[in-house]
Amino acid sequence: MAVMPTPDYVLRLREHIGHDPLVLIGVTAVILRETSDGTLVLVGRRADNGALAPITGIVDPGEQPAVAAAREALEEAGVQIEVERLAWVHQLPRRTHVNGDQVDYLDLTFRCRWMAGEPVPSDGELTEVLWRRVDDLDDLASDDLRERIRLAVTGTGEAAFQKS
């Protein structure tokens, strides 16, 4: 099983805090493409656990979140996108990685439109990239990922968020 690369700045922080919880800002790029068959969403099979998920990643220091979403789409799947709007802001449950590192991810889910490029696994984080109909996502890794896609597809234009 492949291990996802850890950014250098996170590794430097870990030298000081060990495995203690670290808050990171994550982005989910829900990349949509309109076809004669309906709306398609780009998903990829993760190299580390084999799960099917939309394009995700973390924001680099000083980087705008929407820019991070576009960067991740190009790095992971080789596609150019337009980030249209923020769809959902939510805190994910604390995750403990296999090496013991604890992370609290604040996820910013963006509705994105495919612009160019045929999707291919580009940087080793995904083993497969494919277009799926938005009503054919039962095998996604979690209900949370399905909810990210649902809110990006059907949202009203205002970002969803929890108030408590």
Rank of each mutant, 00 (worst) to 15 (best):
V129T: 07
N99S: 08
H19I: 15
L108Y: 11
P5L: 02
R14M: 07
R94P: 08
L151D: 01
R132I: 04
K163D: 13
T56R: 02
V120G: 09
G100W: 08
L92G: 01
L106R: 10
L106N: 07
E147I: 09
R71M: 03
T6N: 09
I55P: 01
N49I: 06
L145P: 05
A53F: 11
P93C: 10
R146L: 03
I58S: 00
D104S: 08
D136Q: 12
G18F: 03
W114N: 02
I31Y: 06
G50D: 01
G57T: 02
R33V: 02
L32D: 02
L126Q: 00
L151F: 11
G50L: 09
E34C: 09
D139F: 12
G117A: 10
D139I: 08
Q64I: 13
R33Q: 13
L137F: 05
S36A: 14
F161Q: 12
T156H: 12
V134R: 04
E118Y: 14
L92W: 02
G44S: 01
V89C: 10
G155M: 07
T56E: 04
T6M: 10
Y9Q: 05
E128W: 12
D20P: 03
A68Y: 00
V79L: 01
L145Y: 12
R14G: 02
W88L: 14
A47V: 04
L42I: 04
P21I: 15
F110C: 01
